[in-house]
């Protein structure tokens, strides 16, 4: 490891490349390839299981060559007893999209406030907001459930949207705060001199400058809302139920449902994979709240 470390520094400086490349370079490839395969293999299983026939799903040894069938997808979407998975899918899309929009709007405003204004208690407020990131949903589920119940909003889109907004606010605020601070202050000062109000400056000058930050926080927020299970499970049953609620109905006593659930799983995962890949650059920064860039 230590050897590798030093050598990598050499590489970075662009020296002695060829000298060290062989056995260690090969070893690196090998380890990296095995690890990548390990990371990707379950995706292969999800997709292929969704495409297999029932017999192939239960086969021992596992079947590697099979003729793909879309039957499971068809069943999950159009047959399969209860409400179609499409219904849950639509709820997921609506709730993720709206909550992300609200979180980004409110979050960007607050982030700008934190980046550009000073006021009493600002530090404490900022760090309190950061600490809400650590709030475990399971510790909040009892009071929040009773609050939503008393508000008469059980099984409603709006309840989940509000909760997911709150869940994502700390992320949006902290990441965008970093992006706003990186804008040279002179631009805004010039605008101020030109007679823009502070809110106009935020809206017309600063916001467009942090577009990449907004895109990546929006994607992250949307993914977190999309994946969220506990609140959805407890607060929605039917009208506003999202994909995780559908997946939670998986019952292995009805052993036949593997294909259908994997099909729904595929639908739940595919968009995320695309976004994750697109997000690459900002992902670490996002997931560590800007602590690591």
């Amino acid at each position: 490891m230590t050897v590798g470390l030093v050598r990598s520094k050499d590489l970075k400086a662009g020296v002695r490349r060829s000298a060290a490349a062989w056995p260690i370079g090969t070893l690196r490839y090998l380890v990296a390839a095995i690890f990548t395969g390990f990371c990707l293999f379950p995706f292969y299983v999800i997709v292929t299981t969704a495409l297999k026939t029932e017999t192939a799903i239960f086969a021992w040894p596992p079947v590697w060559n099979f003729k793909p069938t879309l039957q499971s997808f068809y069943n999950a979407l159009f047959v399969f007893g209860g409400r179609s998975a499409i219904f849950y899918l639509i709820n997921s899309v609506i709730i993720s999209a709206v909550s992300t929009f609200v979180a980004v709007v409110l979050g960007a405003m607050a982030a700008y406030g934190f980046a550009r204004f000073s006021f009493a208690g600002k530090r404490h407020l900022a760090f309190w907001i950061l600490s809400t990131r650590f709030a475990p949903p399971v510790a909040f589920i009892v009071p929040i459930y009773l609050m939503v119940q008393k508000a008469g909003m059980l099984d409603s889109h709006i309840a989940l949207i509000l909760i997911y907004t709150a869940m994502n606010l700390s992320l949006v605020i902290w990441i965008l705060r970093g992006f706003f601070s990186e804008i040279p202050i002179e631009i805004e000062e010039a605008a101020l001199v030109d007679g823009y109000s502070r809110l106009q400056i935020f809206w017309r000058v600063a916001l467009p400058l942090v577009r990449p930050g907004i895109v990546s926080t929006a994607i992250l927020s949307a993914i977190f809302s999309w994946n969220e299970f506990l609140y959805a499970m407890v607060l929605t049953q039917s009208k506003a139920a999202t994909l995780p609620v559908y997946l939670a109905g998986f019952s292995n006593s009805m052993g036949l449902a593997w294909g259908e659930y994997m099909a729904v799983g595929t639908m739940a995962v595919l968009p995320i994979l695309i976004f994750t890949f697109a997000l690459q650059k900002h992902l670490v920064r996002g997931l560590t709240f800007g602590a690591v860039k």
Partner: peptide, 18 residues
């Protein structure tokens, strides 16, 4: 006919919540 079939414990929870 929208038939939502749930495992026992999930059903119990869903009935209470419903």
């Amino acid at each position: 006919i929208e038939l939502d079939v749930r495992p026992f414990d999930v059903l119990h929870q869903q009935v209470l919540l419903n």
